[in-house]
Design a binder for these strands. Structure first.
Length: 429
RNA sequence: GGAGAGGUGGCAGAGCUGGUCGAAUGCGCGCGACUGGAAAUCGCGUCUACGGGGCAAAACUUCGUAGCGUGGGUUCGAAUCCCACCCUCUCCGCCA
């Protein structure tokens, strides 16, 4: 949600931003028109309410004095009818304003590079050596199948396509990765761990920006009016919804594991194999609530927190800045982390770290205030994956595969795997 | 799921035989006085949103409106009455 005052003040700038995002800039003219009507009506209604309050109080006095209140009551009732009419108008204008406001995307930072789609994202740095194999490295789904730790056909039998099932050491490795990620973020990087609900109400989905525009991407539990979360960003960001945080307490860092559920509408044909794009996956999420003055610095730190996981796993990756055309609805600036997948001979996204500035804070009504007074202001919210667990598992399998079909367990994960050094054919299952 | 009780400001807690209630009181918090400093004490202050005016603008200020779980209704007027929904607590049932 943008600030309506900003739209009033600089409509051309907002329109230009919409044009760049291929949204319809005429929305803004419509919005400003309704906004003016609304304010006009509020002014009229408030004036009438004032009159009503004054006249109404007179009735109280008249009653005490034993006078006939009927003529006065009739007069005030008529004022009330007019107020009711204006209120109805205001309400329908409010609805229309909200409908428009909630589909206007955030205004990208000026630092976002131009570009029409993900092919124009900008690489900022690489870490690690791309490994050389003396054999042809396999994609993770082949590795997983051979080791009998990834069973997709059975997952499909149980559920439907685009669901997966981990077995034996595969499941254990997923758990190890999750614990490792959470331990790093909570014990070393200052995040407070949250294990959130995986089903949330529509208000929460509105707060973080999934609704109303992206309903088709969500799984809904119709009977209970709840949605399965597509990321822990939703519950973590809404954690402070409708609250005013002490300025002294900022920044706040939260990290949480959740299963994530995405309908993947419109992704037919993409990444159909393996762990890369499924309806359900595990993720450790990072969310920050920061002072508006330092959200960009905090984004850099958050990016480093996500990178740290890949560094310790010794998986080569690169950092990308997302260009205008690939940015999405909510963030003003976004980094992606992509690991090198030798079995697929390509880079695969494993994390996104975004600064959403006050866009979500406005929707979810998350503000901060100094104890010493002053007006509350909206916090900035940031979110990032730290990391997507399923894809990280894929990264481990592909980067740590050996010629005999075994997979070496990365050193940092061994404490979480009871010291296991490698997953062998014979140990499968 | 059944029975009952209840949801008031940062917290606790009055008000709930409708008008003078944005709402007593206490705590907390902020500023000031006192003090070598602190505690205690005393004084002042302390919600938010929207709309209009003042200011280049923000801060701020002034006027008005709204808000006592949420949404409707009754009434000239609702924290107070009625309805629906949500939530919390206690007991029972069920259950990992």
């Amino acid at each position: 949600m943008l600030d309506i005052k900003l739209i009033r003040k600089e409509p051309e700038m907002v329109k230009e931003s919409l044009r760049k995002r291929k949204s319809d800039p005429s929305l803004i003219d419509r919005l400003l028109d309704i906004d003016e009507q609304r304010r006009d009506n509020i002014g009229k209604a408030d004036e009438l309410k004032n009159t009503r309050n004054v006249e109404s109080k007179k009735i109280g006095k008249m009653k005490k004095e034993g006078k006939d209140i009927q003529p006065q009551a009739k007069k005030v009732r008529e004022i009330g009818d007019e107020i009711k009419r204006l209120n109805d108008e205001i309400r329908s204008l409010d609805v229309e304003i909200y409908e428009i406001m909630s589909v206007i995307p955030n205004i990208p930072s000026e630092k976002v590079p131009p570009g029409k789609d993900d092919s124009e994202n900008v690489e900022v740095r690489r870490w690690g050596e791309i490994p050389e194999f003396s054999f042809t490295p396999l994609p993770h789904w082949d590795i997983g199948e051979k080791l009998d730790i990834l069973d997709i056909p059975r997952a499909v039998k149980l559920s439907k396509t685009r669901f997966t099932l981990l077995k034996g050491m595969g499941a254990a490795l997923e758990r190890a990765l999750t614990s490792f990620m959470l331990d790093v973020q909570t014990r070393e990087r200052g995040y407070t761990e949250i294990l959130p609900p995986f089903l949330v109400n529509p208000e929460s989905m509105l707060g973080s920006g999934q609704l109303p525009k992206f309903e088709e991407d969500l799984f809904k539990c119709e009977k209970y009016n709840l949605y399965l979360i597509p990321t822990a960003e939703v519950p973590l960001t809404n954690y402070h919804a409708n609250e005013i945080i002490d300025e002294e307490d900022l920044p706040l860092y939260y990290s949480g594991y959740s299963a994530c559920f995405r309908s993947e509408a419109g992704s037919a044909g993409k990444d159909t194999r393996g762990l890369t794009r499924n309806h359900q996956f595990d993720k450790v999420e990072l969310v920050k609530f920061t002072h508006p003055d330092n959200s960009y610095d905090e984004l850099e730190k958050m990016l480093n927190d996500a990178e740290e996981i890949l560094k310790r796993l010794k998986i080569p990756y690169r950092v990308m800045i997302i260009c205008l055309g690939d940015l999405g609805f909510t963030p003003v600036f976004k980094y992606d982390l992509e690991f090198w997948a030798p079995g697929q001979n390509r880079w695969v996204e494993v994390s996104s770290c975004s600064n959403c500035t006050d866009f979500q804070a406005r929707r979810a009504n998350i503000r901060f205030k100094s104890r010493k007074g002053g007006k509350p202001d909206y916090v900035h919210t940031l979110n990032g994956s730290g990391l997507a667990v399923g894809r990280t598992l894929a990264a481990v399998l592909e980067n740590y595969q050996n010629e005999d079909g075994s997979v070496t367990v990365p050193e940092v994960l061994r404490p979480y795997m009871h010291g296991l050094e490698a997953i062998m054919m014979t140990e499968a299952g």
